[in-house]
Structures are given as structure tokens and as C-alpha cells.
């Protein structure tokens, strides 16, 4: 367990909750969206353009009193593959892990093909991950490829 180092806490300390660290600042609001943060009751602190020794500038999201399930966290890998998830309990970092992209992405991404059935019928989208670095997805239905830089969330 890591003891908190108050010097490194650029934003408010949490007693309990989740810190999602090392988010590319350009995609931070996409991650906020993906985690449905505007609809949470919990208090949330969002930091952008913080100095990072790993990546120059970074973004960070701290959600008090909440621990996300693995599936939800792994969705983050779609847009912020280098993100790191820290769980805080009683001011201590009790677990740290990297997000990892699942093989199938269910109902998160929109297909960019306007002629795809998923854009023409009330249904879930499904993509298969065909490449991880950088991320490339293939629509299960119309078989169009979606590149990491053209990802749009549903």
C-alpha cells in the first residue's frame, strides 16, 4: 500500500473512491462521458493539463465513494489505453491497474457507416477488436473498420 503523498495531490484527496490517472488530456471529456459521470450523485473532481512525469500533460478523474466494475473500466481502454486506475480506501491506494481492452465492444461505439443496420434499427452495436495498438474495430454487422481516431461513442 502506498501512503498518500500530499505534495502530489494536485486535486482534492479522497478518503475512499477511484482515481483514474494518466488520461490523455485530449480525451478526458470522452472518458467523463463514457463513465456517465454527469449523471452520478457522487462528488467528482476532474483535473486537466496537469504535469505528468510519464506523459507530459495528463488528465485525471477522481470519483468519491465509488468503485467501478472491471467491464466499465475496460471500456476506457478504447479511448485512453494508457489510463491507470487506482482504488483508494481510507486515503491509501489499495489497488492499481491498467485498463485492458476486451475482445468485443458491446453498445459503446457508434458505427460510422450510415448504411449500417445499427444506425437504422433500434439495437445494440457490437464491434470486434481487430487491432489493439492503435485500436481498430470491426463492426460485427456491416464489417466496416473503425480507426481509433474516428471513434464515436453511442
Amino acid at each position: 500500500m502506498t501512503k498518500i503523498n500530499n505534495d502530489s495531490l494536485a486535486v482534492a484527496a479522497l478518503k475512499d473512491g477511484t482515481v483514474i490517472d494518466r488520461i490523455n488530456p485530449e480525451v478526458i471529456f470522452k472518458v467523463v462521458d463514457l463513465l456517465n459521470i454527469p449523471n452520478l450523485k457522487n462528488s467528482v473532481t476532474i483535473g486537466v493539463n496537469l504535469d505528468s512525469k510519464h506523459m507530459g500533460k495528463k488528465g485525471i478523474i477522481k470519483v468519491a465513494d465509488m468503485f467501478f466494475d472491471e467491464e466499465t473500466l475496460n471500456r476506457i481502454a478504447l479511448i485512453a489505453p494508457q489510463a491507470k486506475v487506482n482504488e483508494i480506501r481510507n486515503y491509501n491506494v489499495t489497488s492499481k491497474r491498467h485498463v485492458s481492452l476486451p475482445d468485443d465492444i458491446i453498445d459503446i461505439v457508434r458505427c460510422n457507416n450510415p448504411k449500417c443496420i445499427t444506425n437504422n434499427e433500434p439495437m445494440k452495436t457490437l464491434f470486434h477488436v481487430v487491432d489493439r495498438n492503435p485500436v481498430t474495430l470491426c463492426c460485427h454487422y456491416c464489417e466496416h473498420k473503425v480507426d481509433h481516431n474516428e471513434l464515436t461513442l453511442k
Binding site: 443496420i117 439495437m123 463492426c139 454487422y141 456491416c142
Partner: peptide, 9 residues
């Protein structure tokens, strides 16, 4: 169908 993926669905 002119919509792609219609048969898979």
C-alpha cells in the same frame, strides 16, 4: 437489403 448487416442481425 440495401442496409449493410441486415441479414446478420
Amino acid at each position: 437489403h440495401h442496409i449493410e448487416g441486415a441479414a446478420r442481425y
